[in-house]
């Protein structure tokens, strides 16, 4: 299921223009990271994909559905959206009810719901916490509940809005594993992130937004080495990309593996 965005403009108020002519196609099964400075329009853009926001002008289509012609409830069967702040998303009395809510609403059969919920809890390592009230969990685990409740909906497109914010190393690895698993099962994953190392190591396409427009769009290797252009949208290249450049490695390296390989080649 492809996503087609054509000349999308959006304003929150007449004098606050958030998106300024965005055209993009995202193919089924792509793993896309969206980066860019605070206020660049990242969240505004992804909120158009499940119809939470409707274009001021231009259009957004999910498959052959124009988002202005379908309700958010209908679009929820195609696009799952994990909020930046789990507290804006969670409302149930226990983890199980929370995670079941989405697939139940989509009208899946009991068997399928049980299966999806079990898998979502496993992937997020929440198994055993089904009975707990989400608000008795730490913010870290609330984030995982928010993730699980979307995963359980089994949508072809999954959006994560800054999933690694405030997360420790173990949990970032956990989130990376979830994304890898979604990739394996052919889902489209769109992730907003400021963690450029996480971006370099887990995505195949990077879109840099600046002032409501697409500044760069391509593979991490093409995009993340462009230090001067990225600086326009307040993004630094990954740590090892900066290091590689400073020590004069020929090619752009973005991950530890690439860096070590290039280093070994240079040593001969």
């Amino acid at each position: 299921m492809n996503i087609t965005i054509s000349d999308l403009h959006f304003s929150y108020a007449p004098n606050v223009k958030a998106l300024n002519g965005i055209s993009l196609t995202i193919n089924a099964g792509e793993q896309v990271a969206i980066i860019g400075q605070n206020g660049a329009g990242k969240t505004t853009l992804v909120r158009h994909l499940n119809g939470l926001l409707k274009p001021t002008s231009g259009s957004v289509s999910i498959g052959d559905w124009d988002t202005t012609k379908h309700s958010v409830a209908k679009l929820a069967s195609k696009v799952g959206y994990v909020f930046q702040n789990p507290d804006e998303q969670l409302f149930s009395k226990d983890v199980l009810t929370e995670v079941e809510f989405g697939p139940k609403n989509l009208g899946y059969k009991k068997n399928k719901i049980d299966q999806l919920v079990k898998r979502a809890l496993e992937l997020t390592e929440l198994t055993g916490k089904q009975e707990t009230n989400p608000y008795d969990l730490s913010p870290t685990w609330r984030k995982m509940v928010a993730l699980a409740s979307i995963l359980a909906m089994d949508t072809p497109i999954v959006i994560f809005d800054e999933p690694t914010t405030g997360q420790d190393f173990t949990n970032i690895t956990r989130i990376a594993n979830v994304i890898a698993e979604l990739k394996k099962t052919g889902k489209t994953v769109i992730t907003i992130t400021h963690d450029i190392d996480f971006c370099a190591e887990n995505f195949e396409r990077v879109i840099a937004l600046s002032k409501g427009q697409v500044l760069l769009d391509g593979s991490p290797r093409e995009i993340l080495g462009q230090e001067e252009i990225l600086a326009q949208t307040y993004v630094d290249p990954p740590q090892l990309t900066r290091l590689g450049k400073k020590i004069g490695l020929q090619e752009t390296v973005i991950t530890p593996q690439e860096f070590l390989k290039a280093l070994a080649q240079r040593a001969g």
Binding site: D168, F169, T170, I172, D197, P238, Q239, L240, L243, P256, F259, L260, L263, A264, A267
Partner: peptide, 20 residues
């Protein structure tokens, strides 16, 4: 102890093992 460490440190530690 499972702390996150910077890529500079973790990569240099890996490079150390390979004598780089």
């Amino acid at each position: 102890n499972g702390f996150g460490i910077s890529r500079y440190t973790s990569t240099a530690r890996e490079a150390q093992k390979r004598n780089l």
